[in-house]
Nucleic acid binder design. Sequence first.
DNA 1: GTCGTATGTGTTATGTTATAACACATCAAG
DNA 2: CTTGATGTGTTATAACATAACACATACGAC
Lengths: 167, 167
Amino acid sequence: MSSSADPEETLGFVRHDHARCVATAIRAAERHCADAGLRFTAVRRRALEILLEEHKAMGAYEVLERLQSEGLGAQPPAAYRALDFLVANGFAHRIERLNAFVACSLPGENHVPAFLICRNCRKVAETTALPSAGIPEIVAGATGFRIERMLIEAEGCCADCQEEREP
Amino acid sequence: MSSSADPEETLGFVRHDHARCVATAIRAAERHCADAGLRFTAVRRRALEILLEEHKAMGAYEVLERLQSEGLGAQPPAAYRALDFLVANGFAHRIERLNAFVACSLPGENHVPAFLICRNCRKVAETTALPSAGIPEIVAGATGFRIERMLIEAEGCCADCQEEREP
DNA sequence: GTCGTATGTGTTATGTTATAACACATCAAG
DNA sequence: CTTGATGTGTTATAACATAACACATACGAC
Ligand SMILES: [Zn+2]
Ligand SMILES: [Zn+2]
Ligand SMILES: [Zn+2]
Ligand SMILES: [Zn+2]
């Protein structure tokens, strides 16, 4: 699955330097928490690391298993609390369609996330809809409605899975 | 809550002739099923009617209760099967964010639904993002990914609830 | 330092949403 | 009438999520 000594790996459908992306995300979170007076505790940090390592959508119970095996919380609430914190602060997103969570690929930046979810392999890529485009049409339909948060979920088939099926 | 003899009621944040909208939707479903050789059975029809009557997001178990009280299926699978059928055929949408279902307001038309979900009163309005707008940006981020279905969920506060809170 | 408050965690129990699996019913075509 | 496909009834259980309360820890005020 992984590719020799190349620091780039295919993750979330996109090749990138993952070690760097993990480090960046953790640092961004540390930074934000320090600035905002939030407590980036062991469980929270570890939960974020787990999401980043896997770099795919993980269920809360899946994250919990990992936390358990490291002695960081044994019951569902431990995982949900950590994940809720990460989501609330923009370090992760919740993918409703899968009842799962992913680390945000643009932490710190205010964005409308768009998730590409492969219904075959369950991998998830995060891309982003620039607030400029498309949104106006939605706002137009939203008379009097104040939009606070918005997300896009696209379901389909990733490049890898298409190859496997139609070779 | 309802407004005298006026055939228009505020539903899904938008005033409209609801009796007509229900009739239209049912007829569209009958039509589509006849054409496609699908069986628009009692449970399925009733489930759609229930969604249309309420015209709001309803959980599967909520729909089930209504079906039960009419002797149309007593267990969860009955509701889930009917709802899955409606979703699969475009008569209803599933709102992931709420684990709930709503009747589609544009049955028959191929569209990217956008849901405005009031986090206060839980009402849901369906509007639509024209496939033309905004989507290109997402497709651009989706190298090799074949999008099959897509939806937009916006969370916020509806006009009514804003008034109540900031009078 | 210690006190008090706010915030985070541990733990138990329970609620909510969803599906697997298999028997039986219904329907439409041959 | 037979047959195969599709839909339904029923039981049981899986998967996801939160309420509630006791305890611990962090942190500023005094
Ligand atoms: Zn990465
Ligand atoms: Zn795939
Ligand atoms: Zn209506
Ligand atoms: Zn509202």
